[in-house]
């Protein structure tokens, strides 16, 4: 985890610098086109209010998951099961923990070393990337349940197909990594 925390610290500083630049650009734009100021500020507050209502709760849910679902636990369960059960578990366990995708790379690497199926590791990483529970609550909020449900449903189906294809590529050349 040393790598990821180092990345996030450097990243945070860069992000604040970027924020300063974006803020400056916004001011310059509004100085050049003062007539737009009213609507830009109105939109800013509209979206900020939506974030204020939702983001603290999302972060809290993420915090709870990271305390109650440890990486070791995931590795232990995922290494154990194969078949439909393993597939289901890969989706489920991938959707629980939080953090950016690169945090999941070392877990995936361990799983492969321990002999987990390539397809399950792909499913696990994909679930981690785009089937997060707190993340999906944000999708529900901003894009509606219809869009969220459709996108999730087809993502699950296509991720399974992708996992099988990638596993096939590994099987034909008969190498593990």
């Amino acid at each position: 985890m040393a790598i990821s925390s180092q990345i996030s610290n450097q990243q945070n500083l860069k992000d604040w610098i970027s924020f300063g630049i974006v803020l400056l650009i916004a001011f310059v734009f509004l100085k050049i086109y003062p007539s737009k100021t009213g609507s830009v500020i109105e939109y800013f507050w509209q979206y900020t209010m939506e974030m204020v209502l939702i983001l603290p709760a999302v972060m809290l849910i993420m915090g709870l998951f990271s305390v109650y679902v440890s990486n070791n636990m995931i590795e232990k369960y995922l290494g154990k099961y194969a078949g439909i059960k393993g597939m289901f578990l890969s989706f489920f366990l991938g959707s629980l923990p939080t953090g950016p995708l690169y945090v999941a790379f070392p877990i995936a690497s361990h799983l492969l070393e321990k002999g987990a199926r390539v397809s399950n590791v792909i499913i696990f990483l994909s679930a981690w990337a785009c089937l997060k529970i707190p993340q999906e609550l944000m999708e529900f909020q901003f894009l509606g349940w219809k869009f969220m449900f459709l996108r999730l449903f087809f993502t699950v189906i296509l991720v399974i197909i992708m996992a099988k294809i990638i596993e096939y590529f590994f099987e034909i050349t008969d190498d593990r990594l």
Binding site: N12, V22, L23, F29, V40, Y43, F44, Y47, M51
Partner: peptide, 12 residues
């Protein structure tokens, strides 16, 4: 910081 950037970009 990224959230604030996104909010400004969206508003603009």
């Amino acid at each position: 910081p990224v959230t604030l950037i996104i909010l400004i970009v969206i508003a603009l």
